[in-house]
């Protein structure tokens, strides 16, 4: 059964090991800065690799990818917000903060999907990498706009004294678009695109040789973090937990439609766009929401993004979006 063999990818298994280690209360721990180092490495490696190949990209498709990424980054949080408000389990500010996470992306999920496609020997378009960089930020702005609207609505259109966040809109937009992971990814892509092929080859084994091993370590750590968050599940409750499973399915389906019908990608590229639509941010959006929407409870959005949606996507979602992409591409 191919789905099962895809679950037996070393990175996915290491994720499961990390999760298990927390459940059995193992004393396994990573030094705190190691997680940051692994994130930096993965973004640089994937940026260099992708940038090198995007050096020969078509400008038209690249621009279309950027526009579709912006569209997803705006539409997905609005959809998520509508769904959350319909559940009546959270107030408007919590809904705005959670929705922003689902409009942004998780680089960890994206990299796992690349490992998954590599395991299948399936080639993929490189444009989703540009979308990964673009989609980090717009949802933060949408989250802020929704939160401001909710605050105004609660006070009958007037800002209540002391209720406005101590962060200016321009400051938040600046933070959203100069976020470390965005700068690193776009910067590494630019370096990969302009550097000579010989110079890029000289970076091996840094760029490709050790990539999978580093991804295993990163996912081991993420598995431990997801395991820790899983313990907070009762805080979010069943309805919000269900949102954490439903929203990636909606985002993934929209992503498949955008990847194939909007951008004309094959199965590999369409799967990656679906993963972008399905994943929820846990790097760029949480600090921004914490500053801009301090009234929202971080244990809601962190538990949903890290404890529910991330494990779901890694274990179930990615093979599911791949099969959906196969169906859509075959039907076209």
């Amino acid at each position: 059964m191919s789905s099962l063999s895809n679950l037996l990818l070393p990175p996915v298994l290491f994720f499961a090991l990390g999760f298990l280690a927390r459940l059995i209360k193992s004393d396994l721990r990573f030094p705190p800065d190691l997680a940051s180092l692994l994130s930096i490495y993965l973004l640089v490696a994937i940026g260099l690799h992708g940038g090198f190949e995007l050096g020969t990209a078509e400008l038209g498709t690249a621009l279309a990818s950027v526009l579709w990424a912006l569209g997803l980054g705006i539409v997905l949080p609005l959809l998520g917000f509508g769904l959350l408000m319909a559940t009546r389990r959270v107030d408007g500010l919590n809904a705005a903060a959670i929705a922003a996470h689902y409009g942004s992306v998780s680089a960890g999920t994206f990299l796992t999907a690349i490992a998954y496609l590599g395991n299948l020997g399936l080639d993929y378009e490189r444009y989703p990498l540009i979308m990964l960089a673009v989609m980090e930020s717009p949802a933060i702005v949408i989250g802020l706009v929704l939160a401001t609207w909710m605050r105004r609505r609660a006070t009958g259109g007037r800002p209540a004294p002391g209720s406005e966040p101590d962060v200016r809109f321009s400051e938040l937009v600046h933070e959203a678009f100069t976020n470390g992971s965005v700068v690193l990814l776009i910067g590494a892509m630019a370096i990969g695109a302009v550097a000579s092929p010989k110079a890029v080859t000289s970076l091996d084994p840094f760029v490709s040789g050790i990539f999978m091993g580093m991804l295993c370590l990163f996912l081991l750590d993420m598995g431990m973090e997801a395991g820790r968050r899983f313990g907070d599940f009762r805080r979010v409750g069943v309805v919000l937990g269900a949102f954490g499973l439903l929203m990636p399915l909606i985002g993934g389906t929209i992503g498949v439609a955008v990847g194939h019908y909007g951008l004309g990608f094959g199965v590999g590229g369409t799967t990656l766009v679906a993963v972008l639509g399905a994943s929820a941010s846990y790097i760029a959006v949480p600090p921004a929401m914490r500053l801009a929407v301090p009234e929202a409870n971080p244990s809601f959005y962190l538990t949903l993004a890290l404890g529910v949606t991330f494990p779901f996507n890694v274990v179930v979602g990615i093979p599911l979006y791949h099969h959906l992409a196969e169906l859509v591409v075959a039907a076209a």
């Binding site: 990573f30 705190p32 997680a35 940051s36 750590d221 431990m224 973090e225 820790r228 968050r229 313990g231 907070d232 805080r235 846990y282 790097i283 949480p286 600090p287 914490r290 409870n297 971080p298 244990s299 962190l302 538990t303």
Partner: peptide, 11 residues
């Protein structure tokens, strides 16, 4: 605010 694991900047 729930668990602050110290693993990510935000928590």
């Amino acid at each position: 605010e729930g668990l602050q694991s110290g693993m990510l900047w935000v928590d």
